[in-house]
């Protein structure tokens, strides 16, 4: 598995430049690695460590704290069935059973064809739309066991490819700060005075 591609290195550098300290880019860069390979490989972590000037162990240390990063291959579609309070009150278990039956795997497992991984997830911030689930972090609200089976069949057939990108792809719109418009990040040790508009205002108005 791979280090970051040239294209992703360019993107990584753009992201690193937004932070006063490079290590802040660690989590965004892990997302890029996961988008590239579908999971976070050792090689990618070594590469990230080089890019932000920390040890590979620090990248792993931070990365493993966070639920979304997977350090072994997962299915193309990660199905997270919410199991917290409101969803539990309104039938989350039924959704999980339907998904388990349809996929022939247990919670936590991956199908042999590498297409699906099934997890029970914690609260997904859609509690009034319970029970809910996410496929690669795209929601399905107020869903039923029948709809879960249909969803799996639609994913299998590729009918939802436009809506749901493969696991690892998070936001398909990225922030881009134009070079001529951005203020730029400065190391905090280089700044000691108030920002310009505060000084200007003390001398009589910002505009």
């Amino acid at each position: 598995m791979a280090r970051l591609t040239d294209e992703n290195v360019t993107l990584a550098k753009e992201i690193i430049d937004r932070y006063p300290r490079a290590k802040s880019a660690l989590i965004p860069l892990l997302h890029i690695a996961q988008e590239q390979d579908g999971w976070v490989t050792d090689e990618a972590m070594r590469h990230i460590a080089e890019l932000i000037g920390v040890t590979p162990a620090e990248v792993l240390g931070t990365g493993t704290f966070y639920e979304m990063f997977k350090f072994e291959p997962v299915g193309k579609y990660l199905i997270n069935v919410c199991g917290t309070m409101s969803c539990a009150l309104l039938g989350a278990d039924d959704l999980m059973h339907a998904a388990e039956e349809e996929l022939g795997i247990h919670e936590g497992g991956t199908t042999d064809d590498g297409l699906f991984t099934l997890h029970r997830a914690e609260c997904q911030a859609a509690c009034t739309e319970a029970p809910c689930l996410q496929v690669n972090y795209r929601y399905r609200f107020r869903t039923t066991p029948v709809e879960v089976r249909q969803l799996i069949s639609d994913l299998r057939s590729g009918r939802l490819d436009d809506e749901i990108p493969p696991h690892g792809t998070l936001a398909r719109v990225r922030q881009h700060i134009p070079a001529d418009k951005g203020v730029g990040a400065v190391d905090p040790s280089q700044v000691t005075s108030p920002p310009e508009w505060i000084t200007a205002s003390a001398e009589g108005g910002a505009s």
Partner: peptide, 16 residues
């Protein structure tokens, strides 16, 4: 104006 600021979008990764 003299007001200059960047807003940086940062992605979390799942931790309550």
């Amino acid at each position: 104006s003299s007001f200059s600021i960047d807003i940086v979008l940062h992605w979390g990764a799942g931790a309550y």
